[in-house]
Design a protein around this nucleic acid. Structure first.
Lengths: 343, 343
DNA sequence: ATGCTATTTGAAATCGTTTACAAGCGAAGA
DNA sequence: TCTTCGCTTGTAAACGATTTCAAATAGCAT
């Protein structure tokens, strides 16, 4: 039989109310009594039944996490950041990746009306401004990861896509490339759009005209990177350098370059975005934008707990952009120690 | 105010017992009444409070998942398999990766005494036979992933490491290599040991003597693969082929080969185990053992639910080994379509 | 001795379900 | 007419905590 509060109360010779108070740190219990109860609870390895507790306190000590299925590379790291911080804060995490069958919003609503969590962290790069009404309707606080920049009354932590794209484009410009192409991310994905904006503005800032022929669409997938590069290199005017909007597409672009006998970086420079592990294996190592993904998860948890504790207002608009850094490999034309791929 | 069973009962003009019965599919409720209640519940978007329900039924509809931190490559896929199946079965999953701070056993006990889950799936390649007493002490059923082969009274789903290692070693032998080295996995890790056994037995089966000098230890890390290969190739008698006990070490070995100007597969063949994504990016593509990791997770969930429903006895010894297959790349010396890395 | 306050404690209500038990009711059989 | 049975339904007791409110006790001033 599982041991419960009655058992503790009986053995301590007090009422269950006193046990509850002692264990929850209420100050209105004599010190001697508290010590006895705490000792007894430890001895018998008593843990309050979370369901009874949740029923009575209307609090679950659990936070929900909803992730898209596409961002597999981030998945692990995001979870790691969230899990680490949640553990430190004594929270459990309930995970739900939004399969293609059910969309993210459904999953969110299910979580919310299911009352299993105190709050939710959502990563959903595909939904745009329409996220506001959903979040507002929700009875529990929500933190978005990588949401659109212009949403109101939503709390969001995101990567500074614009700045990262701007900087890495400037890096290419610093190599004296002037014909710079880009393989964009999917239409409607705001990570993709912001990276494109950073790219455009960097060119503008250095008085380089944007050549529409140098811009091809992509889907953040390896395959689309492969075909994207082929399209770029089959034109009469070929780029000297290409910015792939994420590393997976850069990896695909490497494949296309290889099959077309294009040498990187001699014939063509390629840079990416994300700094996922496999890009370290490329030869030469990919020059890319590092994103602080673990930190993103940790910050999201910390802020969500503040909202749950009502230290901040969930209906407030709060946007925090985490800055990125460039990782220099050999793919941009740089000659340095990192030039060589690990392999 | 959140809507509850009393509200439904009042509006339907019945007692809460009837509402509960109607919604839980008890047959002892008149069809007409049931229809009315179901319609009403849907209209008002009524969802039973999971805490009240859990308190009363002593069931949580949640399964716990404990993963080690080291197996990052598997992480995503394992989760995907578990999540997919859990969703299909209408279960939630509560995740906890066992950080280095707290060991797996602690985490397990916390889950168990916390009564938040109906059962747990654990992946812990580092704990050996001592898992039996822990699992037996547990009040809730446990499914192990990749446990040691010889544990009793434990339910375990695992990859057939032995068979995979045997087959890929035979593949090398088929290339007429006779001097075959191996970079082993960590001491005490039974995945590592089983792979080593498969390797040894394959040599034995083909009358090739095991040369102890051709066996070096490793840690399943890229770095240990790097140094492992260096050690092997710095001896007077060098291997013609090397079996790295996992892909990460094979990747490290590629790095060592490159830095030593050793051509793969001309000067040296390398094969791995796991078929993780990055091994597809190597040039030539790595020949390796594919492991059905998503399937592993799905099977674990299905079986765990059976145990929870008492369809099978949790104290029984149950071991299921999922067979593996070889993925042929160019690293073993094969000349075929897959020879070329995607990059 | 009386009244007042501060400190601890306990009794009981509450949270929202499930479920054992009882009961009402019409039909069927004796 | 009286039992008995099957079908529905309701009453009330768990389930195991938290929390409100009241009460007991002790200390102190009057």
């Amino acid at each position: 039989m599982e041991i419960n509060i009655n058992e503790i109360a009986k053995r301590a010779g007090v009422s269950i109310a006193t046990v509850s108070r002692a264990l929850n740190g209420s100050k209105s219990v004599r010190d001697e009594t508290r010590q006895k109860i705490i000792r007894l609870a430890k001895e018998l390895n008593y843990k309050p039944n979370p369901f009874a507790r949740g029923l009575s306190k209307k609090q679950t000590d659990t936070i929900g996490v909803i992730l898209p299925e596409l961002v597999d590379e981030f998945f692990t790291e995001i979870i790691r950041g969230i899990d680490e911080e949640a553990y430190r804060m004594n929270r459990y995490i309930m995970l739900s990746s939004s399969h293609s069958r059910r969309n993210t919003i459904e999953t969110l609503l299910e979580f919310m009306s299911g009352r299993r969590v105190d709050g939710v962290i959502i990563m959903a790069p595909q939904i745009g401004e329409d996220v506001t009404p959903i979040v507002q309707k929700s009875k529990r606080p929500v933190v978005m990861l990588n949401c659109a920049a212009n949403v109101d009354h939503v709390t969001c932590f995101k990567i500074d896509n614009y700045q990262g794209a701007f900087k890495i484009t400037e890096h290419l410009i610093g190599h004296d490339y002037s014909k710079i192409g880009m393989i964009k991310g999917p239409e409607g994905n705001f990570d993709a759009e912001e990276r494109f904006d950073g790219f455009k503005d960097a060119l503008l800032a250095h008085n380089i005209d944007l050549n529409q022929a140098m811009i091809v669409p992509g889907e953040f997938s390896m395959k689309s990177g492969y075909y994207g590069l082929l399209r770029l290199m089959n034109q009469k005017e070929k780029p000297e350098a290409v910015f792939a909007a994420n590393d997976m597409m850069a990896i695909g672009a490497y494949g296309a370059a290889r099959s077309s006998n294009i040498q990187i970086p001699k014939d063509l420079a390629i840079v990416g975005f994300d700094d996922i592990f496999p890009s370290r294996l490329l030869n030469p190592r990919l020059t890319t934008v590092h994103v602080p993904i673990v930190e993103l998860g940790m910050k999201a948890v910390r802020y969500l707990l503040k909202m749950i504790n009502k230290e901040v207002d969930p209906r407030m608009t709060y946007l925090e952009e985490l800055s990125t850094g460039i990782v220099i490999g050999g793919s941009c034309g740089c000659e340095n120690l990192m030039n060589q791929s690990i392999i």
